[in-house]
């Protein structure tokens, strides 16, 4: 492996991040780094802590411990600069169903302070790219689930972010919509040098050219390019590596738990 160039500022840098809701520890000492152009899959089962991680990175609330920086801007100290560089597709659908596609996107553009003319231009461009330009004046309620997701992706990109975060973006989509979304986002990584964090519980969304972060019960079990993670676990595929890592983790946890009691 060639060492990653450390000169460039990481698009997203998370270190020593822990968070608890009351007695439940949602994240334990999580750390990773995304370079521009990286397509990184955050892989974990439901409840692994992916959504908590997203909430902390997007500053919905602050962590108790740890540091998050977006292109060098600390999320606590320079939230405005950090959030301006970030586009987010949340797990739950977040469009106004009674408004048209364009009205939804225009609202988002205004939340980033875009001028009317710039917003119109960017909305057209992004809708064109996701193949929904002719639906611009359709109310979101009349769109299919796959189309709504594409609108949400277009919305996340209207202000030209250099870091794109997607939390379980393919949940509930059919195969074709899923394929479209993955291809489109991977194309963005290459063509715009965009850093992408793609959270999912579907292992096949991380192919061999992706990087992966395996998150389990709030802890990062391993991370790196998919073939390396598999090789380290001593198995041929990521699926097998995931099983191995989570079983090992379960073993140590039970062992520790037993010793503590």
């Amino acid at each position: 492996m060639t060492p990653a160039p450390q000169l460039a500022t990481p698009a997203l840098d998370v270190s020593g991040l822990s968070h608890a809701f009351g007695p439940r520890q949602a994240l334990r000492d999580v750390g990773f780094s995304l370079a521009p152009g990286d397509f990184t899959v955050l892989l974990g089962l439901n409840g692994a802590g992916k959504t908590t991680l997203f909430a902390l990175v997007t500053r919905l609330y602050h962590s108790r411990q740890g540091r998050i920086a977006v292109f060098g801007h600390d999320i606590r100290r320079q939230p405005s600069a950090a959030l301006a560089a970030m586009g987010v597709v949340f797990q739950q659908p977040t469009l106004d169903l009674d408004l048209t596609v364009r009205q939804n996107l225009a609202y988002h553009a205004s939340l980033h302070g875009l001028s009317g003319s710039r917003a119109r231009l960017r909305i057209e461009e992004e809708l064109e790219r996701v193949g929904l330009a002719d639906r611009r004046d359709t109310r979101v309620r009349q769109l299919s689930g796959g189309q709504r997701r594409r609108v949400e992706l277009a919305r996340a990109l209207v202000h030209d972010p250099a870091l794109l975060l997607l939390d379980e973006p393919t949940v509930g989509l059919d195969i074709e919509s899923r394929r479209f979304l993955i291809d489109h986002v991977r194309h963005l990584c290459r063509s715009r040098d965009m850093a992408v964090l793609w959270a999912t519980h579907l292992i096949d969304e991380a192919d061999d050219t992706a990087k992966v972060i395996v998150l389990h019960q709030g802890q990062v079990l391993d991370q790196g390019p998919v073939p390396q993670v598999a090789a380290r676990a001593g198995v041929p595929t990521l699926r097998a590596a995931f099983d191995t890592l989570t079983h090992q983790h379960q073993g140590t946890r039970q062992h520790q738990g037993g010793a503590a009691r």
Partner: peptide, 14 residues
């Protein structure tokens, strides 16, 4: 509850 509040809160404005 539905999550759309998040789109407002991730705006870079204070």
């Amino acid at each position: 509850e539905m999550g759309s509040m998040k789109t407002l809160l991730v705006s870079p404005f204070p």
